[in-house]
Design a binder for these strands. Structure first.
Lengths: 224, 224
DNA sequence: ATTTTTTTGTACCATTTCGCATTAAATTCC
DNA sequence: GGAATTTAATGCGAAATGGTACAAAAAAAT
């Protein structure tokens, strides 16, 4: 029961922790046989593919290389692990997009790049396209679980807001006509994200998804 | 173990069957204690709320008033029942919308009515909003189950097509500018359906969803 | 070397889950 | 009324599931 494929020791230090936690402060007992961050990544993969209910602790145990008690000790029960996975997913997604949202570039370019990244996220995955965690599994749990619901809502409005400032800026720069409504446009932009997430899950090929994105951009930005 | 709340005998004859199956042809053995159609409706409700994996046969048995062997005999195993439920959902959704898609009315009106119905479908439900079966649970199963995937794909393209002819007609009638692309617009219209399905599931109140719909209509149809 | 501390790994428990075998009931046909 | 037929109801059983107790293991501290 050991974590296979542990990352090469030098690479990808999970720069999450408190910035300056230099080396290990010499922990006391038996050393961990797993890297919490890679384990969480594996759990995320599973939850994302199969959803909460269809992912068993045995599956998680096998995927993370941790046995159940360790899993439990490190992350809490199944629901806690699910929530942590979702948090991780959102952090990663945000990290992948935030720079482009901030970048100084023409509206069309920025949108195109955002959607390209979204497609990368949704379509990759060893066992078929993975879709979007928020759309595919979290939204399902959201009906009955208030905590997850809050996270989903937060994620949705975060995306709306990012798009909204994007359009507002473009309008100020004269890239959009006077009558354009940044908020309505932002919600359409989010809707486009959602629709490609769903379609990706149904194995719609990337080419078609790109066509949808292009069409949406054209409508939102007006004629070239 | 009897089906409670059986529909009032006169009402709601499930006009599904082969058109002219008049009265019962006097079946031979012990009569059924359940109405297959209402049972399927109950199963649909459950699957829709909890998804495939989180819905147990015991839940289904309790909700339908059929015990497990009867359930099994009538619909086959859990997966078969799920698929039949999904089929039923799509039939109902199609039935609710098809007339409006066909109706002769200004584009804006037709869109508004379509979305109003969609909101009704997504927001109703005793235990919270129910969302869309396709988006919330079928799309999840679609990754790994080819049959369900085929149904999801069919549902998606069906909706795209309906919207597409809608926009094409409107364009021919001069309700849309020359440059309008009916297909791109249709995909945005579908995307709007998808986004409200997701947001409904996260308990976004109807007012907000209506605002999103209105904004989308305005962008798609151009300035009034 | 011994103790202390932390983690691992095995094994277990109670519950749930799916599916089916079997018996009892209700109805039609003869 | 009795045979045949169809369904209901009970309940079994094997497997899976979420969670945990407990002893062995591996490291630092003394």
């Amino acid at each position: 029961m050991v974590q296979k494929n542990k990352q090469p020791p030098s690479a990808a230090k999970p720069q999450a922790a408190k910035a300056a936690a230099p080396a290990e402060p010499k922990r006391r007992g038996r050393p961990r046989a797993y890297e919490p961050d890679v384990a969480l990544g594996r759990a995320l993969e599973l939850f994302r593919r199969d959803g909460f209910a269809a992912t068993s602790l045995d599956d998680l145990s096998a995927a993370t290389g941790m046995n159940r008690p360790s899993l439990y000790g490190a992350f809490g029960d199944k629901r806690a692990l699910y929530i942590k996975s979702y948090q991780r997913y959102r952090d990663e997604a945000r990290a992948a997009m935030i720079e482009i949202f901030r970048a100084e570039a023409p509206l069309r370019d920025r949108l195109a790049r955002i959607y390209a990244i979204a497609l990368d996220i949704y379509l990759s995955g060893a066992s078929g396209p993975r879709g979007c965690f928020t759309v595919m599994t979290a939204a399902s749990e959201a009906v009955s679980d208030p905590d997850i619901r809050a996270m989903v809502l937060e994620g949705l409005t975060e995306m709306d807001k990012a798009f909204s400032t994007c359009f507002r800026l473009a309008k100020e720069r004269g890239e959009l006509p006077e009558g354009a409504d940044p908020i309505a446009l932002a919600q359409l932009a989010s809707a486009t994200i959602h629709t490609i997430a769903i379609r990706a899950r149904a194995h719609v090929p990337r080419k078609e998804l790109e066509a949808i994105v292009q069409g949406a951009i054209d409508v939102m930005c007006g004629p070239k």
